Amino acid sequence: MTLEPLKPHSREWYARLARELGGYRHPWARVLDGPDPELTFDALLAERLGPGVRVLEAGCGHGPDAARFASGVGRWAAFDMVPELAAQARANAPHADIHEWNVKGEVPPGLRGPFDLIVSRRGPTAVIGRLPELAAPGAEFLYVGPRLDVPQVPGRLAAVGWAVRGEWRVSVRARVPTRQDWATRCEWMTEPGRVPEWDAHAGPDGLPYREERYVALASNLS
């Protein structure tokens, strides 16, 4: 599947993912040689949940985390900027409170805190700038991103008086089976210059690469 001519990661591009793939899903095949690199995020998230915990999820996509966790917490509110994805999240996660929001302007009434935990699984890092008005005293922020370093995360946290308490960089061997899969992944990662790597390094089983994730856990300094 090719996402051209839409601009990668635009609202229209995500809406097309929702229509054609049924949600926020990677549109390429991959094979991991080890554990999913997002299991670190899953474990940190799961150990912070409980019946009284109020959670805000930024960039919920089609709602897989809300569907998995919302019934076990006191409140799970979530938002996405793409109406098609928000609609899918409402259908997939009936226990969650799903809204459309792009992190700009006034916080919608249904997303007003305070929240004990704000989470973002490859979602918008701009939500960090809104932590002071969303977070409860002693709240935490948990993030996972698609590269080993996402420099705007610690920078934005410091700007609002929050500190990174833990960082995890996870790298797992993986491969893509076809050139089209590799080209689609490069487009997703906004790395079109890497497409020729297929011709130089692919073998009978495809092209090996590293599937990477950066996980950060932060809390308020005050």
Rank of each mutant, 00 (worst) to 15 (best):
G145R: 09
F79A: 06
E133F: 12
E84L: 00
I128L: 08
A136K: 12
D42Y: 15
A66Q: 13
A58T: 15
G63L: 15
A200S: 06
S171C: 12
L148E: 06
W168M: 09
T184P: 06
V164C: 03
G59F: 10
H201P: 10
A136Q: 10
L3Y: 14
D33T: 13
G74F: 12
R48G: 15
E106M: 01
G74C: 12
R25Y: 07
L157Y: 14
R68N: 07
A200N: 03
V82P: 03
P114Y: 14
W13V: 03
R156W: 11
F141Y: 14
A183M: 07
L85H: 02
L131W: 03
G22V: 15
D97F: 07
T2R: 08
L21N: 05
A89R: 03
A15F: 04
G203T: 10
F79K: 01
G203N: 07
L3M: 12
V164R: 07
L207W: 02
D36T: 11
P196H: 11
W76M: 05
G123D: 10
A202S: 09
D199K: 05
A93T: 02
R90E: 01
G23V: 05
R112G: 12
Q152V: 14
P51Y: 14
P124I: 14
G52C: 14
G52N: 15
P109S: 06
E57S: 06
L49T: 12
W28Q: 02
A216V: 01
Y24V: 12
G74E: 07
P137H: 01
V31Q: 14
A18C: 04
A135N: 08
L117W: 05
Y24D: 07
E211R: 04
W162L: 08
N220S: 09
A29W: 11
F69S: 10
W182S: 07
L148S: 08
L157T: 11
V53D: 14
R194M: 06
L6C: 01
A202F: 09
G59S: 08
E211V: 00
T2A: 06
Q180N: 11
K7D: 10
N220T: 04
E38R: 15
V144W: 01
A87N: 02
D149N: 12
L111W: 15
K104R: 13
R75D: 08
A18H: 08
A218Y: 00
L221S: 04
P94E: 07
A93P: 02
F79T: 02
F141Q: 02
E20V: 03
A87Q: 00
E106I: 02
S219M: 00
L17H: 10
N220R: 04
G161V: 14
D65W: 11
P192R: 05
V215N: 00
W198I: 10
L142P: 00
V119G: 04
R16H: 05
W162H: 08
L44Q: 11
V107C: 07
E20F: 02
R185A: 10
P27C: 02
A96C: 05
D149P: 03
T190D: 15
P83Q: 04
L32D: 06
G34L: 08
A139M: 04
P37K: 03
R165Q: 15
P8C: 02
P146N: 10
R54T: 11
I98W: 02
R54S: 13
E167F: 08
T40P: 07
H99K: 05
C60P: 15
A67M: 09
R179I: 13
I98V: 05
A174V: 12
M81H: 01
G155I: 13
E38T: 14
P35T: 12
A87F: 00
P124S: 15
